[in-house]
Amino acid sequence: MRRLLLVIIALATLLPSLAQAYEVLVLQSSHNVGYEQALKGFRSDCNASQRVVVLSDYAEVDVVRIVREDRPRLILAIGDAALAATRRITQTPVVAVMSLGIGTRANLTGITMFAPPEKYCNLFKQLKVHNVGVIHNPGKTGWYLDKAQKAAEKAGIKLNVRRVESPRETLAQLGSLAGKVDALWMFPDTTAVTRETAEAYFRFGQHQAVPVVSFAASYLGLGAAAAVDIDSTEMGRQAGDMANALLRGARIDEIPRQAPRGTKYRINQNVLGKLDINETTE
């Protein structure tokens, strides 16, 4: 009798959890194309069971409760909103992709949106520019600037750096670069580049007749001369590899955040033509 009672209790508690059991909780910020591509790439490399929650489909999502009840082994956060939703998750490892704000947390790793600076420096060399202006917020992209400085030094490029603490300062700092640079490097810095100030970069490039090199191909249509675009699908695959390693038992502190593997140059020939710059090879 006692055994029967134990069996009933075990079934009552385990059966529902067995029905919902999965290994990876995928938190996707929205249905944006880039996010969908990243998820596609992730799935192509990681065969673990998944539950996908698209945050934009709900008014409010209690991620902590989901994690407590479902107990996934890993969380894949796609996009900044998804990453922000995992802020209160401290035990479950989080792999973040397609996010600009991957900071330093004990349970957090992922693929940054910062392409290797060498890629940019290589592009600047092809554009035959030597003085490159950069505006950034040290609190957000200071680590990346350090890398960029080293890469630029190797490539014989001088970076004119301007620091901003708020988006409104961007315009003034841009003005201070006038006549001092022959290219502008647009960092993926959410303080230096906002929806309101992005236009100012391209105006600067137009007025100063210097190329603006951006981090996303979507800016080419607004006046950027070139961009080092990141392949979202490849980034998903890269995250899939990371997840596989974690699911195999690797500790998260053993897997540091990585730069994206798949990057590609995008060129706006019309802008380059207007700036009298010869075509570059991708």
Binding site: S30, G34, F215, S218, Y219
Partner: peptide, 22 residues
């Protein structure tokens, strides 16, 4: 209002659309 065509870095990366000019 902010330029309709100009996007934030997040939207530029994700390929999404902005909710509306601010």
């Amino acid at each position: 209002r902010s330029d309709v065509l100009t996007t934030s870095p997040e939207s530029a990366i994700s390929g999404g659309t902005e909710p509306g000019p601010t």
